[in-house]
């Protein structure tokens, strides 16, 4: 449902994506791994038009992604995003964060949006935090609210941009388990992550990206357990055995 064909992207003179071709099928979970600065996040940001790309084509269910066109709004309601730093709206409660999109973008009736918002907060284990403002929540709780906010748009896919990188280690698990449940329910997910355990257990496929190109890709277990390319081997060794 998401197709990338020879996508190039430069920031000034630095080319961060040098011809990315990949596709994500419905209900598939794809993890993107690689060193920092390799262009992983940029791929996600191009898919839902937070960044424009210079060459090639990205499409979501056949519709071309163009960040400067009005059609981008429709694509964004189908492909939600969860950020490393949560980016919850601090002036609104957890529930208000979740129902903001349904209420003001999709113009759903309030009762319906609130009912589904509460159900989604329950789904991520935060039914009792509906009326709490984000600054009073832990990082893990905030990220789960952010996931509920993404789900509230009833998207066809969710993009996760290092969703656990800003969390204290003991809070990572609660977020990953919510994501795992989503994957089990058949949500299409693209996850930029450094959590190799999650990638191995949950992802269908893994893309290893370095220097703006896909160096290696394949079934999660084969890429992570028997990497073929020396750069993948080197990267995984450093991530899994930092000492």
């Amino acid at each position: 449902m998401i197709e990338l064909n020879d996508v190039h992207k430069s920031f000034g003179k630095v080319e961060v994506l040098k011809g990315i071709t990949a596709s994500v099928a419905k209900s598939e979970v794809v993890c993107i791994i690689g060193p920092s600065g390799s262009g992983k996040s940029t791929i996600l940001r191009c898919i839902n038009g937070l960044e424009s790309y210079d060459r090639g084509e990205i499409s979501v269910e056949g519709a071309r992604v163009d960040s400067n066109d009005r059609s981008i709004v429709a694509i964004r309601t189908q492909v939600s995003m969860v950020f490393q730093r949560f980016n919850l709206f601090p002036h609104r409660t957890a529930l208000e964060n979740v129902i903001e999109g349904p209420l003001y973008v999709k113009k759903e009736p309030r009762e319906q949006a609130v009912a589904r918002g509460r159900a989604l907060l329950a789904q991520v284990g935060l039914a009792d935090k509906a009326e709490v403002h984000p600054p009073k929540l832990s990082g893990g709780q905030q990220q789960r609210v952010a996931i509920a906010r993404a789900l509230a748009m009833q998207p066809k896919a969710i993009l996760f941009d290092e969703p656990t990188s800003a969390l204290d280690p003991e809070l990572v698990g609660e977020v990953l388990s919510v994501m795992r449940k989503l994957a089990d329910d058949g949500m299409t997910m693209v996850v930029v992550t450094h959590e190799m355990g999650f990638a191995r257990d949950v992802a269908d496929r893994v893309l290893f990206i370095d220097g703006g190109v896909i160096v290696e890709q394949g079934a999660a277990k084969s890429v992570l357990n028997q990497p073929q390319h020396p750069r993948t081997q080197d990267f995984l060794r450093r991530v899994l055995h930092p000492l």
Partner: peptide, 13 residues
């Protein structure tokens, strides 16, 4: 914070 604006954009605002 720019992240606020991006979050709003990603829910279609």
């Amino acid at each position: 914070d720019k992240g606020q604006i991006e979050a709003a954009q990603t829910i279609g605002m």
